[in-house]
Design a protein around this nucleic acid. Structure first.
Lengths: 344, 344
DNA sequence: CTGTTAGCGCTTTCAA
DNA sequence: TTGAAAGCGCTAACAG
């Protein structure tokens, strides 16, 4: 009931079983069958009797390596990240890895500090799921830190864009947005507004670029005052829509928000202003987080197989190291739903 | 670029700075200022030059304790858990703790195995966020495992109900559901259906009980065939609604799903069957996960401050141990939204 | 205040 | 095969 009893150690088990430390170690963890069955059983029985659990930290220092995957996300309560995390955790556990998690709160200073701290865990793998930003001076420090980590045997996997010189799970943000634009034009839409994240956010930038290029193919453009920059969150989406409404968007037919949570926030703002999503105005998002098929109207979006993205990240990390850094491209597919009905 | 270089050790730093191992240790980590400033600076400079990061595993074995919090959740991609996780991670990081995470997939066998494995990390704190089940034989083994963990100095915190003899963050599932029922009756509802989880799930059971008791106060009941048992997920909610529809629920005025993701799934099923949530049928949920204020109609639910729940769990774990196990009760508050308009 | 020296729990040579 | 013993990187007495 009260503390004070220490956890049984391998030493205890060995004594209980009447064998040496080495034999105990080999019976419980050592790979190949190099231990007499009789001994092995004695040891296992003793371990069970004592409730022995190997001290992972001790194993880590003795072996010089851990079985942990460190995952860095922007915000775990965001469905985008939590879905990726689910994939990472699932795949990691299947391979016997433990996953530790840290949250950057979308702050790149903080991300750098976290990576530095996480290095202390000597994880075998470090996965960065937060989206990259451009022009940050801290990016350079981050690369240095990650490179140092790799040079000591760690594996780095970045999810999203291939800005950093590491293995990456590449999301086709640009292409997905471009195809989305094409499909929307095909549905009859001509006048658009865009709710974007801050320009330095690469994911956001790529999606906006792809969308605009997709429109440009059909000789359509979006006036600069119809592209607002805001936070990459639900509230950002809401605020972005409010800003657009203030600019006056009576003739806008469709609002593209660069991710689903923003789109959902935007829908609420539009609705509050009397514009009915899916009826008097269309809305599209990006990601296909689980809930958007259940909202009304169901949201048109670009699907990313988020769980798979997480799984791929660990597969990549556990695969043999390659020369220039491998990349696994992940397809994005346009999903048209009721929020963008065909016009006319 | 290639592996092979080992991480710099404290030893390297000490040599580089021309001081002893102990001095290096004290300069970098040791608590009180017991080191000459000149030395301290030399050491810190050397550490920076070498890119030294203390090996947490080594520290753990030397100190005999770690700075990690292990969090066990049912499914991290479920907003209920991911919000709690956000709170846990936030609070843990503020106290300098690392959090490791494991997922039970709502399987109590698996939960037991995970707890056993997690013990190997020798975390200071083990937080169980998955909801408890009754009558499972594995519960007993779980208690044994957790008790053993506590007896070796660890802290256990359970989130949800006080079934287990450990510190707990107590969610008022019963009371919240009861108050919800009262409010709904106040709004004019009289005929209900309930989509519940499996009966052994304590959270589900408490919510159903509270709801029924709340109705009973007004001499209302729910016929047994209007209470369906299904999975505690979005798809479960969908399936539950389908089942209700098959039973025929033309006269049902309101469907109470025992959690929000189920309610959201149920809404989709109802809508597909031609019943419009918020118009031809009302729906209520429980949890108040972030998205439900943005769905249409916005969902009436019982709010749990999920982030705070996570924070409380670590506060509890980091507070001095008490005799019988402390519990922090968390209030739940009814939030009436458009999915349950006043009748007539 | 600094350095020396045992450990911490475990793995892994190296002999036996 | 098994056991003794030397580490792994770090902390914490214990002397100086």
């Amino acid at each position: 009931m009260n503390a004070g009893v220490r956890s049984p150690t391998l030493h205890d088990v060995a004594r209980e079983a009447g064998v040496s430390l080495a034999t105990a170690s080999r019976s419980l963890n050592g790979s190949a069958r190099k231990v007499n069955d009789a001994y092995r059983e004695r040891v296992q029985a003793a371990a069970a009797r004592l409730g022995y659990t190997p001290n992972l930290s001790a194993q880590a220092v003795a072996k010089g390596s851990t079985m942990t995957v460190a995952l860095v996300v922007g915000d775990i309560s965001d469905p985008y990240f939590s879905s990726i995390a689910a994939g990472v955790i699932g795949a990691a556990e299947e391979s016997g890895f433990i996953v530790t998690m840290a949250v950057t709160a979308r702050d790149s200073e903080r991300e750098l500090a976290l990576v530095r701290a996480l290095r202390g865990q000597r994880p075998r793998v470090l996965i960065l799921a937060g989206s990259r930003t451009s022009d940050e001076p801290s990016q350079q420090a981050l690369v240095a830190e990650l490179t140092a980590f790799e040079s000591t045997g760690g594996r780095v996997v970045v999810i999203s864009q291939h800005e950093l010189p590491f293995d990456t799970v590449l999301l086709d943000n640009y292409g997905g947005a471009r195809r989305l634009a094409a499909e929307l034009v095909g549905l009859g839409y001509r006048r658009f507004a865009v709710i974007s994240g801050v320009p330095s956010l690469l994911t956001s930038r790529d999606r906006v670029l792809g969308f605009l290029d997709g429109l440009a193919e059909h000789d359509l453009t979006v006036p600069a005052d119809r592209i607002v920059h805001t936070e990459f969150t639900r509230d950002g989406g809401f605020a972005g829509a409010v800003e657009l409404l203030e600019h006056g968007i009576d003739d806008v037919e469709l609002v593209f928000a660069v991710n689903d949570v923003m789109a959902v926030g935007a829908m609420s703002a539009l609705r509050e202003a009397g514009r009915i999503p899916g009826e008097s105005i269309a809305v599209a998002g990006f990601d296909d987080i689980p809930t958007v098929r259940d909202i009304t109207p169901a949201l048109t979006t670009v699907q990313i197989p988020l769980i798979d993205v997480g799984r791929h990240a660990v597969e990549l990390a556990l695969a043999p190291r390659t020369a220039g850094g491998t990349e696994i491209p992940v397809e994005t597919t346009v999903v048209i739903r009721e929020s963008t009905p065909a016009r006319k």
